[in-house]
């Protein structure tokens, strides 16, 4: 079957792309200088990598129930990954884990300096 072999080739390509993005995320995890840069390197290429592997599964199975489950899987991952990334970035910024010298501009610090009373209540409520 021509169609089957085309789908098989596409499956292989998607799997390889997913693996490549995973490796790139791992290399970024090792090379990047601070926690937030590592966050950039890992979470997002990984989601695309996962999407490629899910596409490969969809191409092999081609059943409505499986594909619906895969769509739910991707949606869950896409909703939850930004939440954890935001929480880690927020904790990292407040804890001073981002090296301030590595930033070109820091408009959040300017905003905090401009509104000291807001900053104080914000910190006190934590």
């Amino acid at each position: 079957m021509i169609l089957d072999s085309i789908l098989d080739i596409l499956t292989g390509v998607f799997l390889l792309l997913g693996g490549f993005l995973s490796v790139a995320a791992g290399v970024g995890l090792i090379r990047f200088p601070d926690a937030i840069a590592r966050l950039h390197a890992t979470t997002k290429p990984q989601i695309l990598g996962l999407a490629f592997i899910l596409l490969a599964i969809a191409l092999q199975e081609r059943q409505v129930s499986t594909i619906l489950l895969l769509i739910f899987l991707l949606i869950f991952q896409m909703i939850t990954a930004p939440v954890s990334a935001h929480m880690i970035a927020r904790a990292g910024y407040r804890g001073g884990i981002i090296a301030p010298r590595s930033l070109l501009v820091d408009e959040l610090e300017q905003a905090i300096d401009a509104a000291p009373e807001f900053d104080d209540t914000e910190r006190a409520s934590e």
Binding site: L29, R38, T42, T43, G49, L50, Q77, S84, I88
Partner: peptide, 8 residues
């Protein structure tokens, strides 16, 4: 971050 990536 790394353990998140390991899980993915």
């Amino acid at each position: 971050i790394a353990s998140d990536m390991l899980l993915t």
